[in-house]
């Protein structure tokens, strides 16, 4: 509808992360909006469907961050608490798919990335963009929820870490301040070979937004779950972290967990809706079926 006025936008590149956060802060202080453009896979779609901008108003400034080196890290950082994977905000899904270290140490991310959009979207879309647009249907965010990622943000006030559990506050809202720039996510790497699950339910095999998607990672010792993370897309106003399911999984030997208690836990944790893609009923059914299958994979009954 309104790609016609796109050419009047100003597209800028910041020379450094420090310059970027300064510019964003400056403009924010003056009440001006700044678009940080990574892959553009969400933003361009929004531009197409919004009403045309009135003439005479100042058009948004668009800052291309897709090639900013400070946002492009993809590395394992060793520390006292064990190895951590750092994924820069401008790392694309295709890079996640192709990265040897991700494939070996965080295969959930690689597997998820292969299901995002299709190859063209994977080549442009970024993990930071997925977090910034904050759709509850985001596949990447469900995986980050399962991995209990820390989100690193930077502003003129400095850098801080937001644990995933403290990030989302409601539909497309978060605790990240408007002038804070997403820099990276960090993940405490699960043990090598730890079981994981990625299951996306969508209307077709590519180019489809999830009706429901489940990400999960676990560590199991002597029949007990010692680490358990899940994230689910498209079943709540935010990415669902399924706290009741988490508590259930950690509460007793895995073999003692039965299907009925899993179903009850899932029902307590999700609140899906009817929309253009699916129904509340179907989503609830899938949410239960997927979590049951995941816990069976770990050794639960039924």
């Amino acid at each position: 509808m309104s790609l016609t006025d796109l050419e009047s936008y100003e597209l800028l590149h910041a020379p450094s992360l420090a310059a970027l956060v300064a510019l964003v802060a400056d403009r924010h202080a003056s009440g001006l909006h700044t678009v940080l453009l990574a892959g553009g896979t969400d933003w361009l779609v929004e531009q197409e469907s919004r009403p045309p901008l009135p003439s005479g108003v100042e058009h948004p400034v668009v800052l291309d961050v897709s090639r900013m080196p400070e946002l492009r890290a993809l590395e394992v950082v060793s520390g006292e608490g064990g190895d951590r994977l750092r994924v820069g905000a401008a790392v694309t899904y295709l890079e996640l798919r192709r990265s040897a270290v991700v494939g070996e140490r965080a295969p959930l991310l690689a597997r998820m990335a292969a299901d995002v959009g299709a190859l063209q979207i994977q080549a442009r879309g970024t993990i930071g963009g997925n977090l910034a647009t904050a759709s509850p249907a985001a596949d990447g965010v469900a995986a980050l929820a399962a991995l209990d990622a820390d989100v690193l943000v930077e502003s003129v006030r400095g850098r801080r870490t937001i644990p995933f559990s403290a990030l989302q506050t409601g539909y497309k809202t978060s605790t990240r301040a408007p002038d804070e720039v997403l820099v990276a996510v960090e993940i405490a790497l699960p043990s090598r070979g730890a079981p994981f699950v990625w299951r996306k339910v969508a209307a077709r095999r590519a180019q489809a937004i999830s009706k429901v998607a489940l990400a999960g990672v676990a560590e199991v010792e002597d029949g007990r779950v010692t680490r358990f993370g899940v994230g689910m897309a498209s079943v709540a106003p935010v990415t669902a972290r399924l706290p009741t399911v988490r508590a259930l999984a950690l509460s007793r030997p895995i073999a003692e967990i039965d299907a009925a208690s899993v179903d009850r836990a899932v029902e307590a944790d999700v609140s899906p809706i009817d929309d253009v893609r699916s129904t509340r009923d179907y989503r609830l059914h899938c949410a239960k079926a997927l979590v049951r299958a995941w816990l069976r994979q770990l050794g639960a009954r039924g």
């Binding site: 509808m1 309104s2 016609t4 006025d5 009047s8 009403p51 045309p52 901008l53 009135p54 003439s55």
Partner: peptide, 8 residues
Amino acid sequence: AKLARAAA
């Protein structure tokens, strides 16, 4: 661009 504004 003006046409889009006019239609709206």
